[in-house]
Nucleic acid binder design. Structure first.
Length: 180
DNA sequence: GATAAGATGTTA
DNA sequence: AACATCTTATCA
């Protein structure tokens, strides 16, 4: 397994989102390593009304504007954390929300964006971390390539704006994709 | 099985 | 006031 490099993230957000399927999200806490295969994602860009970066750079979403391959971790509904990876280029607010994982190592039950964070101890301390470095405690590695006919593209979940954008991608027939 | 409601805190 | 969610309760 090798770590995913900058070039991967420095592309169009939709492409990165699709290509993240099958890659492996890794987290090190208390000398334990957790791993899971990414099976479901959503793309968000600065031109997208549903994106936190739509209204421009704010304190909360600054990580979306950072170098490609930066973690954006935020609190939603007062209770739950969600994790994104910033994409495209520095100064442009875009990223990919990791919605579901297939457990590989030291985790289970990760069929939702906040469940991932709970299972892997991803908190807002990780906001702004560089996921291209293992010593951030959170990074991604190359996994299996997913054949095109196994990738489903559809509408995003839990948003009210731009609800017609088909910017959600998941692996067909995978048990760990979140429910409607 | 399905659907509805409640928890909860940060943000602009 | 809105919010990129999850769990529990209450039906059937």
């Amino acid at each position: 397994m090798s770590i995913i490099k900058r070039d991967f993230y420095a592309r169009d957000t939709l492409i990165v989102a699709k290509d993240l399927l099958g890659q492996v999200l890794c987290r090190k806490v208390n000398n334990k390593i957790c791993k899971g295969i990414i099976v479901e994602v959503e793309a968000y860009t600065q031109d997208d009304p549903a994106c936190h970066a739509y209204k421009g750079l704010t304190g909360r979403c600054a990580s979306l504007f950072a170098e490609p391959g930066t973690a954006y971790v935020y609190l939603i509904y007062g209770i739950h954390n969600c994790v994104n990876i910033s994409t495209y280029k520095k100064g442009y607010g875009s990223g990919v929300l990791i919605r579901a994982l297939e457990p590989l190592q030291n985790i289970e039950n990760t069929n939702g964006p906040s469940k991932i964070c709970k299972a892997m101890c991803i908190t807002r301390e990780l906001d702004g971390k560089d996921v291209k470095k293992m010593n951030s405690g959170l990074w991604l590695e190359y996994g299996e390539k997913i054949p095109k006919n196994k990738i489903v593209q559809t509408t995003r979940i839990g948003i009210t704006k731009a609800a017609d954008y088909k910017w959600r991608f998941y692996i067909k027939d995978n048990k760990f994709v979140s429910k409607l």
